[in-house]
């Protein structure tokens, strides 16, 4: 799976949950929202090998 956050991209192996993927790259689930094809996902969702997960920062703008 591919994980994208701001200008960074990570390639992660295996079918893992979003929670575990975030842990692997050192991000707190409180600080980001995970989306796939523009749709929001909860952290227990298991992502597949060819999935692209885009993370949206919770704190922004204003």
């Amino acid at each position: 799976m591919k994980l994208i956050y701001r200008n960074q991209t990570w390639e992660l192996k295996g079918n893992i949950t979003i929670r575990d993927a975030l842990k692997k790259v050192g991000l707190r689930p409180e600080s980001v929202l995970a989306t796939r094809d523009g749709k929001l996902l909860t952290e227990d969702v298991v992502v597949q090998a060819d999935d692209v997960i885009t993370l949206v920062a919770v704190v922004s703008g204003g």
Binding site: L33, L40, A57, V58, S60, G62
Partner: peptide, 21 residues
């Protein structure tokens, strides 16, 4: 929570300024 507001904007399809000041 801020997290809920970000999620609301996303799910509602509100196009907002994403970059921090």
């Amino acid at each position: 929570y801020e997290r809920e507001m970000a999620a609301y904007a996303l799910v509602r399809g509100i196009d907002y300024i994403y970059d921090e000041c």
